[in-house]
Design a protein around this nucleic acid. Sequence first.
DNA 1: TCAATTTATTTCGCACGCGAACTATCTAGG
DNA 2: CCTAGATAGTTCGCGTGCGAAATAAATTGA
Lengths: 137, 137
Amino acid sequence: MFLLNVAQRRLQRWMAARSPHGGVTAAQSGLLFVLGQRDGALMGEAGAALDLGPPGISGLVDRMTAANLIERRADPDDGRAWRLWLTPAGRAAMAQSKAGLADVNARLTEGFTDAEIDVVARWLTTMQSRFPKGEDE
Amino acid sequence: MFLLNVAQRRLQRWMAARSPHGGVTAAQSGLLFVLGQRDGALMGEAGAALDLGPPGISGLVDRMTAANLIERRADPDDGRAWRLWLTPAGRAAMAQSKAGLADVNARLTEGFTDAEIDVVARWLTTMQSRFPKGEDE
DNA sequence: TCAATTTATTTCGCACGCGAACTATCTAGG
DNA sequence: CCTAGATAGTTCGCGTGCGAAATAAATTGA
């Protein structure tokens, strides 16, 4: 069960090590992908897509805004909300990350049959419902 | 591929939520287990067992020492090294964590056959060699 | 013996994300 | 219209772990 922890960390570490170019981390590329599919999303929406709580996105957005990858613009219909938009630099970084992703995914599935990968994917997905955010027992 | 990240975070979050008792976190219980099997380990050894770099353990040990779970004692044969020992409180916390672990593992494997779990375990383990610490390509 | 190197650990600055508490805005109810 | 609650984000303090640079002790070599 510590396997999961270690595996995740290994992957993260490896990804961090091989992409020092523009400083786009794994978490950041996640948000880039989300905005690539739904530019102008609310922070809450983006957070839900990435399974992050409010503080998680807030910080991520802060860092990415500072890095000039995304922009925070007020929602015209709701004074509390902000919408997130990719900058040109962000769009470029996303394209680059997308290319890298294929590589990583290939490496993740290498040596396993489709059926096996299917089992793994199902297990990971199941875990999300098995360990819910809110309640327990 | 973000699945892994999310799954790990979910698990971590869930474990954190359900054990506010003594403040023993997942990372900390990991170290407790290591010391349970090899009390008096060097920091480097413990780090290797948990797949943590030097800064990782150093910080973990600091926090756990402050919480009175473990003790840092100088190695008599090597002036640079420290050996880690469980305190009585640490030993108690370990026993408690061990009990909880069975629960978590049961929940992790629930709904999957032994063969399937085997595939998952193999996949997680393989990832460790697939994404090595040091070098690349 | 005395540098040069290796090894064990610490420190620093960073990214990440959580829970809790807070602010500001929007929406209902009376 | 005005107060009560829901909703969107922010801030704070914490734990976690990384890479890079520093410190200190041990080992190796000339």
